[in-house]
C-alpha cells in the first residue's frame, strides 16, 4: 500500500513539474551574498561580549571566569541556587564540579544504574553540562549529545541548567556554527530559558524546559 502511495506521489510531482522521464535537473545555483561570518576568530573578545549581551537580553544568567576558576564559579552559582543534588553527563570534565558541595548522579554511569530514569531527572535540583558551540550573534548554545553534553532528556527535564562554554567554542553567526556540528548527532539549540509568546505575543520566560539557564563563560 505504502509503495503505491510513494510511486503515486512521485508520479504526481513529475507530472506537476512537466517532467516526463529524463535525468533530474542540476541543482540551481543559490546566491549566497549574505554574511557567512562576522569576521572574527572563535573566542575573539568582541564575540564573547556579544554573546554575553545576547544571553542576558534573553534572560540567561552569565558568569565569566578564567580557566582555573571554573570549579569555583560553578560552585558559587550552585550554592546561590541552593542546589543539593545534581545530574551530570558521563563525560563532564572532572574539575567542573570538584569545588561544589553537591551530590552528583551521573547519567549512563554504571554506579548510578545506567541511563537515569525520567523520575530521577525530574527530582534533581539541576544539571551541569558543556556544549558543542555557541553563536554570539543570536545568543545560542548548541548541545550535541557528546560525552560532556549528555543525552537530550538530561538537559530537558531538570528545571535548572548550567552550561560551561569555553571561549574557543564561541563563533560569530549561525553560518559559522553549522560546519562545526554533526547532523548525525541529535542537536538542541538553546537560546535562553524556555519561553512563550503565546499570550498577547509578549515573551514570558519559563514554561516546560528548564526555567533557569546559567552560563559560565570560560575566557582565555
Amino acid at each position: 500500500m505504502t509503495t503505491s502511495a510513494r510511486d503515486e506521489v512521485l508520479r504526481r510531482i513529475r507530472t506537476a513539474l512537466g517532467r516526463t522521464g529524463g535525468a533530474a535537473p542540476q541543482p540551481s545555483p543559490v546566491p549566497r551574498d549574505y554574511r557567512t561570518s562576522l569576521g572574527q576568530e572563535p573566542g575573539a573578545p568582541g564575540l564573547l561580549d556579544l554573546l554575553v549581551d545576547r544571553l542576558v537580553d534573553y534572560k540567561a544568567t552569565v558568569h565569566r571566569c578564567a580557566p582555573d576558576a571554573v570549579g569555583a564559579t560553578v560552585a558559587a552559582a550552585l550554592a546561590a541556587r541552593g542546589a543539593r543534588r545534581l545530574a551530570a553527563p558521563s563525560g563532564l570534565p572532572a574539575g567542573w564540579l570538584a569545588a561544589a558541595d553537591v551530590e552528583t548522579v551521573t547519567d549512563g554511569a554504571a554506579q548510578d544504574g545506567g541511563a537515569l530514569p525520567v523520575a530521577t531527572l525530574d527530582a534533581v535540583d539541576g544539571v551541569v553540562t558543556g556544549c558543542a558551540v555557541a553563536v554570539a550573534q543570536t545568543g545560542t548554545i548548541v548541545l550535541d549529545s557528546s560525552p560532556d553534553c549528555g543525552r537530550r532528556a538530561l538537559t530537558l527535564v531538570p528545571d535548572y541548567h548550567l552550561i560551561v562554554v569555553r571561549a574557543d567554542q564561541v563563533v560569530g553567526s549561525v553560518p559559522e556554527a553549522l560546519p562545526r556540528l554533526d547532523p548525525d548527532r541529535p542537536l538542541t539549540w538553546v537560546s535562553g530559558p524556555s519561553a512563550t509568546s503565546d499570550i498577547e505575543l509578549d515573551r514570558v520566560e519559563g514554561v516546560h524546559g528548564p526555567r533557569t539557564l546559567v552560563v559560565v563563560l570560560v575566557e582565555g
Binding site: 545576547r54 534573553y58 558521563s90 549512563g108 541511563a115 553563536v135 550573534q137 543570536t138 545568543g139 545560542t140 550535541d144 549529545s145 557528546s146 560525552p147 549528555g150 543525552r151 537530550r152 532528556a153 547532523p183 548525525d184 548527532r185 541529535p186 542537536l187 538542541t188 539549540w189 538553546v190 537560546s191 535562553g192 530559558p193 524556555s194 519561553a195 509568546s197 505575543l201 515573551r203 524546559g209
Partner: peptide
C-alpha cells in the same frame, strides 16, 4: 524564520534529529 515569526534573533529551542538518534557514545537518545 525566528526573526520573521516571533521577532526573536533565535527562538529558545530548536531540536534536530536524524532517524533513531544516538549519542556520540552510541547510546539511544530519544
Amino acid at each position: 524564520l525566528p526573526r520573521s515569526s516571533t521577532g526573536e534573533r533565535m527562538n529558545p529551542y530548536t531540536s534536530m534529529w536524524t532517524g533513531a538518534p544516538r549519542t556520540s557514545d552510541g547510546a539511544p537518545d530519544g
